[in-house]
C-alpha cells in the first residue's frame, strides 16, 4: 500500500469519526435549547483554524508524492469540490422548499451546513483516491 492510500484510509477514518462526534455534539447542543451555542461557535472557529493548519501541512506532504499520485489527488479534489457544491445546493434548496420562502432557519444551521458539506467533501476525496488506486493497482 502506497503512502497516498494509507493517508486516504486515515483521512477517511478521521472524517467518519469526526462526523459522528460533530453530529452528536450538534444534536446535543440544539436539544439543550441554544445553551452552549457559543461553545459551538468557538468550536467552529477552532475547527477552521485546525483546517487551515492541516491544509498548510497537506501542501508540504504533497511535495513527497510522485506525478501520478499528484494527478490522482487532483482528480479526487475536483470530485470533492463538485460534491461540496452539489450537497450545499441540494440542502439549501431542500431547506428553502421545506421551510418556505418566508420562513426562517436558525443561524446555527449555517455553520452546521458548511461543516457537514466540508466533511462530506473530504469523505468523497478519500473515497475517490482509494477507488482510483484500487483500479490501477493490479500487479503486473
Amino acid at each position: 500500500m502506497i503512502k497516498l492510500q494509507t493517508r486516504a484510509w486515515i483521512e477517511l477514518a478521521v472524517v467518519i469519526w469526526l462526523a459522528a462526534i460533530c453530529a452528536g455534539c450538534f444534536v446535543l447542543l440544539v436539544r439543550l435549547n441554544s445553551r452552549g451555542l457559543d461553545t459551538l461557535l468557538i468550536g467552529g472557529i477552532a475547527g477552521l483554524i485546525a483546517g487551515l493548519i492541516i491544509a498548510v501541512h497537506q501542501t508540504r506532504i504533497d511535495r513527497q508524492y510522485d506525478e501520478r499520485e499528484k494527478q490522482i489527488r487532483q482528480k479526487a479534489f475536483s470530485w470533492a469540490s463538485k460534491a461540496f457544491v452539489v450537497l450545499f445546493g441540494v440542502i439549501s434548496f431542500v431547506a428553502f422548499f421545506t421551510v418556505g420562502g418566508k420562513g426562517t432557519v436558525p443561524v446555527y444551521f449555517l455553520p452546521g451546513l458548511f461543516f457537514g458539506c466540508l466533511l462530506f467533501a473530504q469523505f468523497v476525496q478519500s473515497a475517490v483516491i482509494l477507488i482510483q488506486c484500487a483500479l490501477e493497482d493490479n500487479d503486473g
Binding site: 510522485d66 506525478e67 501520478r68 490501477e136
Partner: peptide
Amino acid sequence: VGVTRQTIIA
C-alpha cells in the same frame, strides 16, 4: 526514476 512501484505498474 524517483516514483513509486505502483506508478511503474500503471
